[in-house]
Amino acid sequence: MLEPMGQKVLLSSKEINIILHRLACQLLENHLDFKNTVLIGLQPRGTFVARRLDKILREDYGVKHIDVGFLDITFYRDDFRRGDKTLSANQTKIDFLVEDKKVVLIDDVLYTGRSIRAALTAIQSFGRPLEIELLALIDRRFSRHLPIQPNYRGRQVDAINDEKVKVMWKENDGEDVIYLIDR
């Protein structure tokens, strides 16, 4: 695998696949048939993780049906007007009620926790969930701004603030790979 300057592979395609299967099993352990559980992928990049987990759970572990939704948190962010750029929104697609359901929020990288804070507010517009859990493929510990921790974590990373974690997916970027990049 080609490694340009200042960029190193954190997880390869094979490792990502193993981790996704482990996360799927952990979800299965807690939610069994997913009758009362919904998966919500956070836009934009958490949706890839949610779709993959849905596929693995259905194809490899025989779960019949899982409600999967996508939540865009742009309008709930706390940095509106703080950056230079307008925050542009993505599609929210939640075709079911989350009232009294167990909700698993899914994102690719958990960093400051601010997106999750926004997601916790946003999800309430769709009803009052029974409980909410958090799944993060990469957990950048030591960089949290808020007291938010994942219930399921793929890999813990001690990246410093100057580094960026970039998650790439076959269906979007050509290959499954996670890089650690010097900014």
Partner: peptide, 8 residues
Amino acid sequence: RSIKKVPS
């Protein structure tokens, strides 16, 4: 949505 408000 049932709650039609965002905090932007």
